[in-house]
Simulated scan of single mutants.
Amino acid sequence: MYVTVFEPSTFVNRPALGIYPPADWVGRLQAALLSTERRDDTPVTPEEMSSSKEGQPLGCPNLAVLSFNNSFYDRTVGCLGITHSKYIHKLDFPVPDWPVARFPALKYPLEDHVRENQEEERRCLTMVEELIDAWNRKGMPVAAVAVEPIQGEGGDNMASRDFFQGLRDITPLWRWRGIGLLVDEVQNGCGATGLFWAHEHFRFSDTPYVVTFSKKMLTGGFFSKESFVPKDAFRVFNSWVGDPSKAALLEAVVKVIKGDNLLDRVKVTDQHLLNGLKQMQGKYPGLISNARGLGTHCAIDFKDAASRDKTIAKLRERGVHMGACGAATLRLRPALILENKHVDIFMESFDRVLANMNS
């Protein structure tokens, strides 16, 4: 039993945190977000002040953010500039002309395609460097590389630690390029992979410069290295910049995750879940393939979107709610309290639906 006492005012009032934060706001952040164990000033010239209001250099420099095919970040204009998963997100919107690299398309099972996958990841890293050089030459230097630990909306696409460390090696601030690595944990964060943050699996030689989060974290935001923190007020800002009630709820969630050792539970159920998916693809080879996952953040591909969508509908009729992503991928996003017995219940329903699909 975990009891957290909240002041009623936390939920009744939503202050404009950027201007009038409550007295306990810093303490709330430390108890919730910061407890997950993650974290040459030059004067602005008059020319920069004036030109920035017009959206022109010097104030607004010609810089680019490099991203990957099949990525998804959201629907605001800046985020659409690095979103490349579905046309419907971007149709009819103007977006920045920024470089797009290939995200590795791995072959499964991984143990049978080690050499091919290593070559694929090297090709993708080479493309990243070539694009950075190309955009430098065209006068629009790459300021950051944005990447998802697992491409959720784009099809639950995964890559190895070597690939992500390769990105980290390309983007250190102490090299001449001065490029920041931005890791999007909106879908991957909060424990589903067996670690609180998915990028922890990559054991980076140095942490990313910015990490974004939302969804299961109950509030949206980011944390960053000190060097990325703006020195001036209102640089990263809106009237609300957060919600004390959501931070209070997140504090309770984090306490339960830690107190009930839910991340350890994920490390038990993940293999049972992935093994079950592999057994199903062995039983229905013409219908499903490419079972994969990190923790219980798992997925499997169907032969086509119609088969995937019909399977989802039939599973819902049996009380199992599933999701779709990518071209023909079924994605699994179970709660952290998932146990092996729940996996067995799902696999029984999954097996029956697939059998009818295959008949």
Rank of each mutant, 00 (worst) to 15 (best):
M1K: 14
Y2S: 13
N13Y: 14
R14F: 06
R14N: 10
P15V: 07
G18Q: 03
P22A: 10
P22T: 11
V26G: 00
V26R: 09
Q30L: 13
R39C: 05
T42V: 15
E47L: 15
E47A: 15
M49G: 14
M49Q: 14
S51H: 11
K53C: 11
Q56D: 02
L58C: 01
L58T: 12
L58V: 09
G59T: 14
V65R: 12
N69W: 04
Y73F: 15
R75H: 06
V77P: 07
V77W: 09
G78P: 10
I82A: 05
I82E: 02
K90V: 13
K90E: 01
K90M: 01
V95R: 12
F103D: 00
P104F: 02
A105C: 02
K107N: 09
R115D: 04
R115W: 03
Q118K: 11
Q118E: 14
E119L: 15
V128M: 03
V128E: 10
E129T: 05
E130Y: 01
E130W: 04
I132L: 02
N136P: 00
R137Q: 08
V142W: 12
A143F: 07
E148N: 14
G155P: 09
G155S: 06
D156F: 13
N157I: 15
M158Y: 14
M158T: 15
I170V: 09
T171W: 01
T171E: 05
P172A: 05
P172M: 11
P172N: 07
R177C: 04
L182F: 15
V186Q: 08
A192S: 10
T193K: 03
L195Q: 14
F196K: 00
A198Y: 04
F202A: 05
R203S: 05
R203P: 00
T207E: 05
M217L: 12
F222Q: 11
E226Y: 11
S227D: 07
S227Q: 04
F228Q: 02
F228P: 00
F228C: 15
P230T: 08
D232I: 08
A233C: 03
F234N: 10
R235E: 11
R235V: 13
R235T: 06
F237S: 08
N238A: 04
V241F: 07
S245P: 04
K246D: 11
A248R: 13
A252H: 12
A252M: 12
V256K: 12
N261A: 04
L262S: 03
T269V: 15
D270H: 13
D270A: 09
L273E: 08
L277H: 11
L277A: 03
P285I: 10
G286M: 06
I288W: 07
S289W: 06
R292Y: 07
L294N: 01
D301M: 13
K303W: 00
R308I: 10
K310P: 00
V320Y: 08
V320E: 07
H321K: 09
M322T: 09
G323C: 05
A324M: 10
G326I: 02
A327E: 10
A328R: 12
R333I: 07
A335Q: 07
L338A: 13
H342M: 08
R352W: 00
N358E: 13
